[in-house]
Computed example of a mutant assay.
Amino acid sequence: MPAKPILRRLGKNGPLVPALGLGLMGASLTFYGNMLEDEERFKLYDRALELGQTFWDTSDQYGDSEEHVGKWFKKTGKRDQIFIASKYGFVKGGKYLETDSSYEYTKQACDRSLKALGVDQIDLYYIHSVNPETPIEETMRALKELQEEGKIKYIGLSMVSSATLRRAVKISPVAAVQTEYSVLSRVIEGPGGTDLLAACRELGVAVVAATPLGRGILTQNFGEASVEEGDARPQMLPQFQAENRERNAKVVAQFTALAKKKGCTVSQLGLAWLLKQGDDIFAIPGTKKIKYLEQNWDSQDVVLSDAEEKEIRAFFDENPLSGPTMPEQLGHYRFRDTKELN
């Protein structure tokens, strides 16, 4: 039997949603290799709904993802059964990784996403990446107005510093912050990540863990799997490049012993560890295959003791991966501050 969904409250006053969501980037972009055909994606969505994995995460940057989810909504009539999150901020058709979080762009981007999804309201709308030259107060004012207009239900921030978050919540409540977080990358727990986890907890903001499996490192066959044509990770991500991949594959192979001891897969153990971190933590693993969708979902049945959580944490303290999670030139996107409001 599939695992029953673990439901958690999204932020201080948010709704109950599955702690394990579904990231849709990989199904609609070629970053992880060939994207899925229309019908394959529809089957993935169908199975996610059957399981109860109804917290879906997309973005206006994920190829045709918004439009495709909109087609599924229209085809099935099941919009009301999905808690849909989307993101904006990287300029569509702009320069590489150009960001715009201005008042005007926020309003325009939301209208485009509503149209693409074919919905009247987006459940959770994130600023994907802030522009440092735009005060966060300006961005939040636009998001608050969109909320008041009924176009979005909850406000989210992504890739911001704790200082930016603190300024944001003075304008309007923030339900969630989406950030890199996994047993492989725990920078938000300390000063290197601006103590973002502590700030979220102090302010009653949920943490939605992007890349909860290290972009595919925490999988049973990492190191053995041949790279699919079009997969950008070996070119883009240091941990996947030849000088680091062999060492990292050995670490994952060693970690497999802990998973076997627990009677689960490497990915299930990684997700279980993440969900163990607190009732304010959510994970959005992405996949293109129904078998991995189901496998990830069943991680909710893996219950860790405090001692087991510490053992897993200690393993990666003693066996850190080689290479940073992002290219050095992109590192500054992770915890962004914005200029002060005049």
Rank of each mutant, 00 (worst) to 15 (best):
A3P: 06
R9D: 09
V17D: 02
G21Y: 06
S28F: 14
S28T: 15
S28K: 10
M35P: 14
D38V: 13
D38F: 11
E39P: 11
R47E: 08
E50C: 01
L51A: 00
D60A: 08
G63M: 05
W72V: 02
F73P: 10
K75A: 15
G77W: 10
A85C: 09
F90I: 14
G93T: 02
L97H: 11
T106G: 11
L117H: 08
N131H: 13
N131P: 05
E137M: 00
M159V: 11
V160A: 07
P173K: 02
V177H: 09
Y181K: 02
S182R: 00
R186E: 01
P191N: 13
L196S: 04
L197A: 10
A199W: 03
C200D: 07
G204F: 02
A209H: 00
A210Y: 15
P212C: 04
R215P: 01
I217D: 01
T219I: 11
Q220M: 09
E224K: 14
V227F: 11
V227M: 09
V227W: 12
A232T: 12
A232M: 14
Q239L: 11
F240Q: 06
Q241H: 09
E243Q: 15
N244S: 12
R245H: 03
E246D: 14
A253I: 05
A253D: 12
T256V: 09
K260L: 10
A272D: 05
A272P: 07
A272H: 10
W273M: 00
F282T: 00
A307F: 01
E308T: 04
K310W: 02
I312K: 03
R313L: 09
D317Q: 11
P320D: 07
L321T: 11
P324G: 14
M326D: 14
Q329S: 15
T338C: 09
L341H: 13
N342I: 13
